[in-house]
């Protein structure tokens, strides 16, 4: 009975250690900084697999592909993407009414 109890405690401890490791270490860590392999998705969100010929003649969609892991909608709020589009307004500048935003909309 005592042997069974010891075995139970040992197994439970090992299980706890594994659980702890899974919780603490992020899944990408095993790739040591390399981006893991991933599926390309087309504009419909379907997998492109050139090896099987599945949708293999279609371009991939960044939105569908990258958004699987990274928040595409958040990323494209960055100013490299928006270029001032979010602030476009006919009333953006009183002194230079042709300038429509903080980006290059309406000006050179």
């Amino acid at each position: 009975m005592k042997a069974k109890k010891k075995l139970f405690i040992a197994l439970a401890g090992i299980l706890l250690l594994f659980t702890f490791q899974i919780l603490v270490i992020p899944p990408t860590a095993s790739f040591a900084g390399k981006h893991p392999p991933f599926y390309l998705l087309n504009s419909e969100g379907d997998i492109i697999n050139p090896l099987t010929g599945e949708n293999a003649d279609q371009p991939y969609s960044t939105y569908n592909t990258c958004d699987m892991c990274h928040s595409y909608d958040d990323i494209v709020q960055g100013y490299h993407f928006q270029m001032g589009a979010k602030s476009v307004s006919d009333h953006y500048s009183k002194e230079q009414p042709w300038v429509l935003s903080d980006g290059m909309f309406g000006k050179f």
Binding site: Y39, L51, D57
Partner: peptide, 23 residues
């Protein structure tokens, strides 16, 4: 009409692509 020919050497057997994407 544009047609794509993918570089199969970049794909694993499971159809996943392997790219040297920089963080």
């Amino acid at each position: 009409e544009p047609k794509v020919t993918y570089n199969k050497r970049l794909f694993n057997e499971d159809g996943k692509i392997v790219l040297d994407i920089k963080p």
